[in-house]
Design a protein around this nucleic acid. Structure first.
Length: 240
DNA sequence: GCGACAG
DNA sequence: ATCTTGTCGC
């Protein structure tokens, strides 16, 4: 499980930005090569003492493999196959734009504990919709070599029109030069939109449709929603 | 200089 | 991210 690129984590903000530029240039945006059957959702939470972080990952098996061509199937059935997690000491501070240096290390360790390789990983963060095209989803994707999708609850960068109120409505998220860096997607009627972007090894169209298909019951796609619930429970019982 | 700013 | 109950609107 390696994307072939490595770097130090104990770095200064300036060094982190330099590394992100390399991550951003290594993103591969393309259609998935295999049908999606195993989807992993990842999320992190901080312990009450604020000194440790836990990354939770939930692996779901879709009843019907997603081929990427068809339209989203409302009510997509699934089964929870695995639940894993990893703890880490919190060293890097939260700095807008540098989130991956705070969460990627522990997220990668949690993903490595999965007994099976997921066909796709969905993260609660931006992917390409980042100042240097290196959001957490892209960083994790490039370092792990796994197809990743960024699915953030709010905007980090970029401009966009407001999508319609209907479920499935969406608009392009554009950078200052007018380039499409993501999709603003309404997953449920009249709820706050999600910011979907390519992490690595997928294209924006598939990423958006997959997120919409998996968010048939709640605003967040099931994988990420379940990972969030698991992380919220784990944070209360940090290791010594 | 001022405002914006994933989790 | 985290602190937190009930409540208004689709």
């Amino acid at each position: 499980m390696s994307g072939g690129f490595h770097h130090l984590w104990k770095v200064s903000p300036a060094q982190a930005i330099s590394i992100q530029k390399q991550i951003g240039s290594r993103i591969i945006e393309r259609p998935l090569r295999r049908p999606i059957r195993l989807v992993a959702g990842v999320d992190a939470a901080i312990a009450p003492a604020k000194d440790k972080i836990v990354a939770a990952v939930v692996l779901l098996q879709l009843q019907d493999p997603w081929l990427g061509e068809k339209a989203p199937v409302p009510g997509q059935g699934f089964t929870v196959l695995e639940q894993q997690h990893a703890w880490a000491d919190l060293d890097f501070p939260y700095i807008p734009g540098l989130l991956s240096f705070r969460e990627a290390p522990v997220v990668l360790r949690a993903l490595q504990k999965l007994p099976r390789r997921p066909d796709l990983v969905i993260l609660d963060a931006q992917g390409k919709a980042h100042p240097r095209r290196a959001g957490l989803a892209s960083h994790v994707g490039v370092l792990s070599g796994l197809p990743c999708v960024g699915c953030a609850k709010s905007r980090l960068t970029g401009q966009h029109r407001q999508p319609g109120l209907a479920r499935g409505s969406s608009t392009d998220l554009l950078d200052k030069d007018g380039q499409v860096i993501g999709r603003v997607l309404r997953t449920r009627r009249a709820v706050k939109c999600l910011y979907v972007s390519v992490g690595h090894l997928v294209d924006l169209d598939q990423a958006s449709r997959i997120v919409l298909a998996l968010a048939c019951r709640y605003r967040l796609p099931e994988p990420t929603r379940l990972a969030h619930l698991l992380a919220a429970k784990l944070r209360l019982k940090p290791p010594a």
